[in-house]
Amino acid sequence: MEYFLRRVIFLIGTLWVAVTVNFFIPRAMPGNPVETMMARFHERGTMSPSAMKAITVMLGISHGNIFQQYGEYLNHVVHFNFGVSYTYFPYSVTYMISHALPWTLGLVGVATIFSFGLGTMFGIIAAMRRGKAVDGSLTILSSFTNTFPYFWFGLMALYFLSFVYHWFPLTGAYGASMTPNLSWSFIGSVAYHGFLPALTIMISSIGGWLLGMRNNMINALNEDYVLLATAKGLKPSWVAWMYVARNAILPNLTGFAMALGFVVGGSLLTEIVFSYPGIGYLLYNAVVNEDFPLMQGIFLIIVVCVVLANFVADLAYVMFDPRVRRGGAS
């Protein structure tokens, strides 16, 4: 219980630091949103100082000193009010994020879970058959996919499978003629549109899980308790799972929880390549347009999710590793 309490205090502290840093970083960047917007309007003609003032007011840019701004910001954050997006005016930042987040969670989340599950499974298989053909081909293949750039794979898949052969759609998360609902045809369309981006993410990340799990497994296989398990005449599948894999997976769990936290950040390049309407794509547009409120909102969501994922990882680790459980409580 004390362990849990300490973790919660630590969580709150981390969140405060993240929120504060998130406030100062955009303000340290050069440029000014009003000037950006004006520059855009300049292309169509000149703009009067009163119009500039109107834009400033409209965007809700505060004129207080930095501390007043900070106080206001904290108050807004607590109420999930991140202001109005400069780029997607008049939509609020909260609205934009809440419309992009489900797509990212679905695409990157599912891809990450599958990639971890499959990678870990293949890692176990490779380690149990180490030195054999299965192990060799899995290891070489994953070393290869692990090193090549995933956006390049995405571009190739998009060019050949979508553009040349028309097997898959070129852009979007669902058919252009559809409206989001819970019908089978819509879900089918989402799966169809999500297949290539998900495949790209999985191919680029599965190798890491596989190699990591294989290494941990091989270390665990050399432990005395595995030798003893063999001597005990336990069934090979029981030894492989309870004695080797259960111990080998522990270091990977932390990595997996971290990866789940980063899911919210989206897969920037994948979403750009496939024009997928997720958080990564939104963040890209926010940065290009110097949309401070949107950037801040997205950064905040990412940070909060990563910190929360860490927190959950800590708690999960306690469940899986008895050494942390009692050790942490004492």
């Binding site: 005395d224 308790y225 003893l228 001597a231 111990n247 522990l250």
Partner: peptide, 26 residues
Amino acid sequence: PLRRARWTEVSVVLQSGMNALNPIMT
């Protein structure tokens, strides 16, 4: 058959008893 004969006929005690027990099982 070897697996079934293990422990019922021959058991072992290893040098480092500390590492001979699985850390995640009671």
